[in-house]
Amino acid sequence: MKDFFCRLFTPWSAGAQFDAPEAFYGFLLGRDKLLGTLRNLCFGIALVLLVIGYAVSDGTSGYSIADIANQPYYLIAVGVMVLALLLSLAMIRIEKELPKEMRPK
């Protein structure tokens, strides 16, 4: 169970679970690709939410933080973008663990 959660939340530190470094690098590359796909999905969702939020707004509110916080679509979009940021940080950490020639360009 501990190994599973390690692979899930901190894949860059799961090296000891693999028979060989190459197997670990393969796992990291796959995980990096998955996180990249999820991140792109977050960007898409945030874009849709922002468009919907703009479409349903009545035009009377401003763009201060308080006004954005009152708009549920904008708020959720911010949350999704924060998630995308966290995924980016995880991807950066994963790519640091890979040999230079294996890092995605």
């Binding site: 090296g15 000891a16 679970q17 693999f18 028979d19 060989a20 470094p21 197997a23 670990f24």
Partner: peptide
């Protein structure tokens, strides 16, 4: 041995 010490290195 492999990294887990459970057998030979795969190579």
């Amino acid at each position: 041995l492999n990294r887990q010490g459970t057998g030979l290195c795969p190579f």
